[in-house]
Amino acid sequence: MATPPPPHASQPDHILPPPFTHTPLTVLTQGAEALVYRTTFLTPSTPVALKYRPPKPYRHPVLDKRLTKARLLAEARVLVKCRKEGVKVPGVLGGDVENGWLALEWVEGRTVRVVLDEWVERGGENGEGENGEGVGVKEGEEELWDLMRRVGRAVARLHDIGVCHGDLTTTADTVSPQSSPASQPTGHELDGDIIIIDFGLATQTVGEEERAVDLYVLERAFAATHPAAEPLFREVLRVYGESFKGAKVVLKRLEDVRLRGRKRSMLG
């Protein structure tokens, strides 16, 4: 998985819709669809991620409005559904889908991608030791394995309530530190809830194909980190498999998806 490039320097800042028109905000991330800013909402002490889908000038304005509204609404509804069913995702604090924005709960923490990258770096150091390149459970790595189990459970919970993420990568999983981390000694920085973010492509479905593709995309993201991450992902799948009733069928389907590489075979 390629990392998206930083926002293009020569691009003009977008004019934000009301009420943000006169607030100078800096873009945090820019995907193909949405710009994300950090600001406050409702009270000056409530940080939010402002997600804005700017109009696409290539699109007919009527079609553009219709799509932007439908997609933001679908995303917001998925998030609300997740929160209602107790799945950890950013809450929706406000928004105006007609004008292309949502104010989402700010999530502190590190992405699983960052955690994995750090682990890979540490692994490099360990590799010089007598343990060689073995990827068995090492001292101090139990919490990493535990993190994998929580990722597996989080994805399983999401699927179980009938939501597929649609773009599940290691940057879509965030480890949120627990509410009182200050008193914790170091070495527990991987504790905390797994919060899944970025629901821009999510759908409400119980289809095993969509579920399997979610897992496949996540697997590819793990593999892109480091070949040594493979056993870690196996643990994600193991726990996923025992976390809800339909999981076994999804794992079976995952094997098919792997074989054809996400894409169905088709006529020329």
């Binding site: 998030l79 929160r83 929706v92 406000g94 928004g95």
Partner: peptide
């Protein structure tokens, strides 16, 4: 938790 869900419901209503 209740509040977060309610804010979301209010945001997405009707449209």
């Amino acid at each position: 938790e209740m509040e977060m869900v309610i804010l979301g419901i209010m945001t997405t209503k009707g449209s």
